[in-house]
Amino acid sequence: MVTFVLDGQTVTAEEGWTILDAAKYYGVDIPTLCYVEGLSPYSACRICVVELIRGKKSRLVASCSCPVEEGVEIRTKSPRVINARKMLIELMLASTPNSRLLQCLASEYGVTKIRFRPEDRRCILCGLCIRMCDEQMQGGAIGFSGRGVGREVSMPFHKTPEACRECGACLYICPVCELPCKGPLKPGELCNACLDTVQIDPFPSK
């Protein structure tokens, strides 16, 4: 067993657990986008970052893949974490405005303005669909192509491959397919419908 501090509480977890596993076990909420139980962690969206403090050193780590460690302190809602998540939400919304999940996160974290040049790329490149297709459906029909900003989820040569059984698992797992409450939004617009009703609790459940 590994003993460490999670948001002020001394807790224990099994060796090999990730910080996210432990947080879930203790009922501490950490948002995730590119992580789903049952698929391998990918650590790409970075929304699940938490602050890991070892001695005097502190850094942000992706809780979905970082294993728990003896004697460390983990803060899931420190100002540094909240700031980072806010910026990440803003960045993702700038390119993917019509995602209910992202718009809700924006309300929750109080993101009320997008300061970046918006566009609609309709994908946050979390790769869940790819891993779902490959790991759960044994399909391997889709993958990433290109790199950097030009990266996209695609079928080889943009043709439906034989491996695709049209099972729809990719659609099912996609975190950004659902429209926000206020319907289709233009790039740069924010839903903020429930801005004042859901706010993150700075003091997590004790």
């Binding site: 650590s43 970075r46 993702m92 990433f144 790199r147 990266r151």
Partner: peptide, 21 residues
Amino acid sequence: LGDESCGKCTPCREGLKHMTE
């Protein structure tokens, strides 16, 4: 760096794009 970013994680891919802008 924007050209050479692999595009996997959000801050590097999107952040560099907007910083460049």
